[in-house]
């Protein structure tokens, strides 16, 4: 389910079934690295919403966790772990992160990290783009599902 009023109704009713939070980790910057950051963030959100569509009865796709390029890694890790604890306290048995930023290290985090390969979508024609997205989505789906079992 998504972070929308209509989906939250379902969340309140079916809480016991919705045990997984999906948190996109998205880097912000307005420096000269903007385009790379945006491209990575865009791909992350695109795939997150594809996966949400297929697993909506168990997965809650939250608004992204964003951080500035200039924040230190320690700060980011600390802040993300605060979020993660908060989510677990509210009943999420699993917290999944989805990112294209190689800075993150699963060993430092309270949840499960999924790092996407960087795909230069903008240089691809549309058919190939869709194929890439489909492939990545099905890979993610199966790793999510196998992490559940």
């Amino acid at each position: 389910m998504k972070w929308t009023v209509s989906d939250v109704d379902m969340y309140e009713k079916e809480k016991q079934y919705i045990d997984t939070a999906l948190l996109p980790l998205v880097q912000l910057t307005l420096s000269n690295a903007t385009k790379t950051a945006v491209a990575g963030g865009e791909l992350v959100q695109l795939l997150a919403s594809e996966v949400e569509r297929q697993l909506k009865g168990r997965l809650f796709l939250l608004p992204p966790f964003t951080y500035f390029l200039t924040e230190t890694k320690e700060e980011c890790v600390k802040r993300l772990n605060v979020w993660t604890d908060e989510l677990k306290k509210s009943g999420m048995a699993h917290v999944f992160y989805l990112t294209s930023d190689r800075m993150w290290n699963e060993t430092e985090l309270g949840g499960k990290l999924f790092v996407l390969p960087s795909i230069p979508l903008e240089h691809m024609d549309e058919v190939y783009q869709q194929q890439m997205v489909r492939e990545q989505t099905s890979k993610l789906l199966s790793s999510f599902i196998s992490h559940w079992t």
Partner: peptide, 8 residues
């Protein structure tokens, strides 16, 4: 679409 909570 699953008739439980809508997964695929």
């Amino acid at each position: 679409i699953c008739k439980h909570l809508g997964c695929t």
